[in-house]
Design a protein around this nucleic acid. Structure first.
Lengths: 128, 128
DNA sequence: CACAAATATTCATTTGACAGTATATTCGTT
DNA sequence: AACGAATATACTGTCAAATGAATATTTGTG
């Protein structure tokens, strides 16, 4: 049953943290990984679960993978993303993640010594 | 995290079927069991998951257990019960369960040879 | 008190989810 | 072609979830 797969997306803290971050806008995998501070393979696997459950769309740019919430979310997804926003008030992780996101984005955009290729820098500007 | 436990309730077909039935009103365990046609211990265990996740309230009457949706559902539960109603159009199980529910309730209320004690009969009238 | 019905719980088994580690893949750069 | 960064996948171990079968518990009845 399709709906069950969709609900699975919300049954793991790491996945909820990822969705919470993406509510603010797209992020690439490496930034997601840096922000929530868990091993990259773990993030990658959870992203797959989210994609399979219809809660995530990814786009490949060079060797980056940009993650964003679906452009046309299902009613079920939409309702629960709303619930997730309400959860921010109850669960401190979500707020600290948002702060970490802000710091990460600012660092990417402001550090002139950052060794990101220029194409990737402008990509970061778009998606962060 | 509390929310994860709540979402677990929606990650199993049997549990979704139970919630779908309870949207129409309370039912006791034995009727639930008869309607969805799965072994009684299985139903009982899923009911426990639903109760622990805040998606179910039970009340003991004699040796019957009346199951109903919470009187004050959380916003998360409320939103997803609404989603569940929409799911009826997509997943045939939910409709056939509702038909089975109707037949079961009618049988209980109309059969004069039913060996239910009178107290339980009137209880059935209340909750079906 | 013995018994039957409704329900819950225990036990053993199987299946699936999650994690860490290592490795493969993809893409751009030198 | 070699290399490095970003990402995905494979492998393995561990633990939780789900199930069937059997049993315990509760409650009313004869």
């Amino acid at each position: 049953m399709q709906a069950i797969q969709a609900y699975q997306c919300f049954c793991d803290e790491t996945r909820l943290r990822i969705l919470n971050l993406l509510l603010e806008g797209p992020l690439c995998v490496c930034h997601l990984t840096a922000i929530i501070g868990v091993p990259q393979p773990k993030v990658s696997r959870h992203l797959k679960v989210l994609r399979d459950g219809g809660a995530l769309e990814t786009e490949r740019c060079y060797n980056w993978t940009i993650c964003r919430l679906p452009a046309s979310p299902s009613p079920l997804l939409e309702a629960n993303l709303k619930c997730l926003q309400d959860l921010r008030a109850e669960e401190p992780v979500f707020k600290t993640d948002l702060e970490a996101r802000k710091r990460t984005v600012e660092r990417i955009l402001s550090d002139p010594c950052d060794d990101l290729p220029s194409q990737i820098r402008s990509l970061a500007k778009d998606c962060c």
